[in-house]
Design a protein around this nucleic acid. Structure first.
Lengths: 147, 147
DNA sequence: GCTTGACTTCAAGTTGGCTTGAAGTGGCAA
DNA sequence: TTGCCACTTCAAGCCAACTTGAAGTCAAGC
């Protein structure tokens, strides 16, 4: 079975070595040994990293993701939690769509101030609805995540 | 014109006093005076807070939002930036939809491990596509926003 | 006049997810 | 066998967006 050096895993996955070590500390991935000091990984790790990335996109924290991998290393997913997360995702999507519409309108609206535009105000209110989800970006320097 | 005490603003907006002070430090909102030590606000501040909340949902950082308010206090929005953000939002939405589908499928899929399900793997790849946007939640303890 | 309670300031702490820096190690090519 | 360079460990640092804690202030009600 193909055994990968940490450097190879990093190059193939786009995940930095420091991140790989961090994930190992957290129990998200496991190395299968060392060659000298260097961690060696089973090729499966690439798939797991992809899974982790997707989980993060879905809004799961690293701890939550770690909890999804059983002690046997296979996924042991709480189907209810998945459905709940999908529901949350759908709510987020609705809000983001309203927001996207609002931004697009604001970009072309001739009103002197956006607050004076009734359409913008309506969209603003719609986007406001409870459900404190947030979309965040790595774009540029702005982090976000926020709690 | 109605003048609001910081406590009133906090209650009506759901934004904590500490956050209001923080926003004032950052130049996002302005108080119009004090009664004793207490900040007093123009009723307009509620609208501005709503705007800030929406901007955050759209993925703007506080600094970026601050830059959108001209020195006159009115919005001075970069229409190009708005359109770009709407585009980014739309891309995020597409990914989140793929993800939502994937989660829902995983929640009912009978395959012993999700990685063995071709449908799940396909969705996983779709959700993977570049564009490092993230959806984050305040749900429970998990913060996120992160960088 | 005294208490109360909601505010005030300022510095420091929190959170999650990493990255960075210093100092060390070891496989491999020359 | 010497050097290189990519790795190693460990502790500390970073980021945004707030929150918390300590110590102080003040308007209003009793």
């Amino acid at each position: 079975m193909t055994e990968l050096d940490i450097g190879a895993v990093s190059r193939q996955s786009g995940v930095r070595p420091s991140t790989l070590r961090y994930y190992e500390d957290k129990g998200l991935v496991a190395s299968i040994g060392r060659r000298g000091l260097r961690r060696q990984y089973h090729a499966d790790v690439l798939e797991r990293l992809a899974l982790i990335a997707v989980g993060r996109t879905a809004g799961f924290s690293l701890d939550e993701i770690a909890a999804m991998f059983g002690s046997d290393g296979r996924m042991r997913i709480d189907r209810k939690a998945l459905a709940a997360r999908a529901d949350a995702l759908d709510r987020t999507i609705l809000r983001l769509r309203a927001l996207s519409k609002g931004l697009r309108h604001a970009a072309v609206c001739p009103a002197p101030s956006h607050l004076e535009c009734p359409k913008f105000r309506r969209i603003l209110r719609a986007a406001q609805q409870r459900g404190t989800a947030r979309a965040t970006y790595k774009a540029g320097k702005s982090k976000v995540p926020p709690r």
